[in-house]
Structure formats: structure tokens, C-alpha cells
Simulated scan of single mutants.
Amino acid sequence: MPTIEHETSPAIAAEVARVKRFLAGPIKGDSGMNAFIVGHVAGPYCPDQAANCGAVMRFEWTGPVIQGSIFNGYSPNQLFDEHPHRAFIPAGTNSNLKLIEIVLVRGCSWEDAIVDPSFSLANLCSWLSSKRAGWRQAVAERLEEEMAAIVATQPNISVCVP
């Protein structure tokens, strides 16, 4: 069972963990999750082009692995190993992908996932709370605990179209 990695922002990693769904890109023929197989026998992959970075999501893949590029479409619930370009899990996948770890890198923290409440009458209490000293750190600590609890269950993650 290979371990695969996908890098994204801390905010997106938290959302994927919470809803147990990875929203794939909008390109129909190439809609899915790009990833890398950890410790690939053929060596490293090409450098990552992640636009949102700072959180590496690690997954255990328990399904079939298909070698090489597929030019007539990708079937769900399969991992396509297109080394050295990428590993790819197509949209529609609803099994075989277990979240096992989220690691923050490059000086990122869970504080990077926090959105400050906006000022409005409906949101006044939250907005006022956010002005207290230590609010951001306390929210980040709760988020870290929440993510650890979710990851501990090793949830299955689905890859879905937006």
C-alpha cells in the first residue's frame, strides 16, 4: 500500500479533513487530485507546482495502481502512476484513499488557516472575541487538536468534481 502526498494550503487541508472530500479541478478530462508516491522506486518526481502550499496531506492508497499515462480517460478508484510527472487520483473516487497525516511545512502554522471574523451586527460577538489577546493562538490550538482527532480516525477521502 503506497503512501501518497498532496501539498496544499493549511486552510484547504483543514477543509478536506473536515468534509472528507477533495474538490478536483474543473478540467473534465483531467479532473482529480495530483499527488506524489512517497519513496517511488524510480526516484523523485518533477518539482511540485502547487499554488497553495504549506500543508502536506499524506494518504494511504489501498486500491489498484495503474502504471503510465492513460490517454483514453481515467477510471475512479484507481491511482495512476505517471512518474516522473505525477501520481493522479481521478474525480469520482470514493474509496481506497485514507488520510493518515497532515504536516505543516515551510514555516506555516494552523494560524494560516484562520479567517478573521468580519465586522457586522450579526457577527459582532465573534468579531469582538477576535480582538482579544491570544485569540488567534487559541483558535489555532483548537484547530490543531481538531485535525489530530480527525486524522486519528484515518477517514476515507472522496475526490469530487466542484
Rank of each mutant, 00 (worst) to 15 (best):
T3H: 04
E5I: 10
T8E: 05
S9W: 00
S9V: 02
P10N: 06
A11M: 02
E15Q: 11
E15Y: 04
V16N: 01
A17H: 04
A17M: 10
R18A: 14
V19S: 02
K20W: 00
F22I: 08
L23E: 02
L23A: 06
A24V: 10
A24F: 04
P26Y: 01
P26Q: 03
I27V: 15
D30Y: 06
S31G: 11
G32V: 02
M33F: 05
N34T: 14
F36V: 15
V38F: 01
V38W: 00
V38R: 07
V41I: 12
P44R: 07
P44D: 09
P44S: 12
Y45T: 04
P47M: 04
P47T: 13
Q49H: 10
Q49N: 13
A50E: 10
A50D: 11
N52Y: 14
G54D: 07
V56A: 03
E60R: 14
W61A: 11
P64Y: 02
V65P: 03
V65T: 14
I66M: 09
I66G: 02
I66Q: 11
I66A: 08
Q67F: 09
Q67I: 15
G68Q: 05
G68D: 13
S69N: 12
I70G: 11
F71Q: 03
G73D: 08
Y74C: 01
P76S: 11
N77A: 02
Q78I: 12
F80V: 11
F80I: 11
F80K: 00
D81H: 06
E82T: 07
E82Q: 15
E82L: 10
P84G: 12
A87W: 05
A87R: 00
A91N: 00
N94W: 06
N94M: 09
S95Y: 05
N96R: 01
L97F: 01
K98L: 14
I100A: 03
I102M: 08
R106S: 15
R106W: 10
C108E: 12
S109A: 04
W110L: 12
W110M: 14
E111G: 06
D112I: 12
I114G: 05
V115C: 01
D116M: 14
D116F: 06
S118R: 13
S120H: 06
L121G: 13
A122F: 08
N123L: 07
L124Y: 10
L124K: 09
L124W: 08
C125Y: 08
L128E: 12
L128V: 13
S130P: 00
S130N: 02
K131W: 02
A133H: 10
W135R: 03
Q137I: 08
V139N: 03
V139M: 14
A140N: 04
R142A: 13
L143H: 00
E144V: 06
M147K: 05
A148D: 15
A148V: 14
A148K: 15
A149P: 04
T153K: 14
N156H: 06
N156W: 02
N156V: 14
S158P: 00
V159E: 02
V161A: 08
